[in-house]
Amino acid sequence: MTHDQRTMTNPPALHDPTPYGYSHAVSAPGELAFIAGQYASDADGSPVPDGFADQVDLALDRLRSALEGVGLGFEHVVRLGSYIVDHEPARLEILGKALHARFGDRLPAQTLSGVASLAMPGMLFEIDAVAVRPAPRPDTD
């Protein structure tokens, strides 16, 4: 695949990530879309709010926006990568409830990593995703 076959998407509902060296979503001809780590951020990309549960909810809202930017939704996600600062079982429970609220019983594969810190001070949670674009249905004329 050549460089110009990729489509970088930075939906207007999300902050401009290019100064930080990434795009919110990258898709290519074919079936996969890769969504960069999303976190609880304001319009300028600064982390908000302070609480872990609130950050999880807002990060998942940002993930939805990135997916919608490439014409996909949570139903297309096949893999998540979750990163939790100072991970503990209570945080896993919060994340599990938030994911069930969005994915129902059709949960994607996930790798969760407990980390000492994330890209910017104040970030407690970040999540990235791989989604699969549905194959076009053949005409049934």
Rank of each mutant, 00 (worst) to 15 (best):
M1W: 02
M1T: 09
M1F: 04
M1Y: 02
T2L: 04
H3D: 13
D4H: 04
D4N: 07
T9C: 10
P11G: 02
P12G: 10
L14P: 08
H15M: 04
D16F: 03
P17A: 03
P17V: 10
P19N: 08
G21Y: 11
Y22K: 04
H24F: 07
A25D: 02
V26Y: 04
S27V: 11
A28W: 02
P29R: 12
G30L: 04
L32T: 11
F34K: 03
F34Q: 01
I35M: 07
I35F: 05
I35N: 02
A36M: 06
A36C: 13
A36V: 01
Y39F: 14
S41K: 11
S41T: 15
A43T: 11
D44G: 04
G45S: 09
P49S: 10
D50P: 10
G51H: 07
G51Q: 12
G51W: 00
F52I: 00
A53W: 01
A53Y: 00
D54A: 15
D54P: 06
D57P: 01
L58F: 10
A59G: 11
L60P: 07
D61L: 07
R64T: 04
S65W: 12
A66R: 05
L67T: 08
E68N: 12
G71D: 06
G71N: 03
G71K: 02
L72M: 05
G73R: 05
F74H: 09
E75D: 15
E75A: 14
E75R: 13
H76Q: 15
H76E: 15
R79K: 09
G81T: 09
G81V: 08
Y83P: 01
I84G: 09
I84V: 15
H87G: 15
E88A: 15
P89C: 10
A90E: 14
R91P: 01
L92H: 09
L92S: 14
L92F: 07
L92K: 00
L92T: 14
L92M: 13
E93I: 08
L95W: 06
L95I: 05
L95F: 08
K97T: 14
L99K: 07
A101V: 00
G104S: 07
G104V: 07
G104I: 10
A109S: 13
A109D: 14
T111G: 11
L112H: 04
S113V: 09
S113I: 04
S117A: 15
L118C: 10
M120T: 07
M120V: 06
P121K: 14
G122K: 08
G122N: 11
G122Q: 12
M123K: 10
L124T: 03
L124D: 02
F125T: 05
I127G: 07
D128G: 15
D128C: 15
V130T: 15
V130Y: 01
A131S: 07
R133H: 13
R133W: 03
P136A: 13
P136F: 00
R137K: 12
D139R: 11
T140E: 14
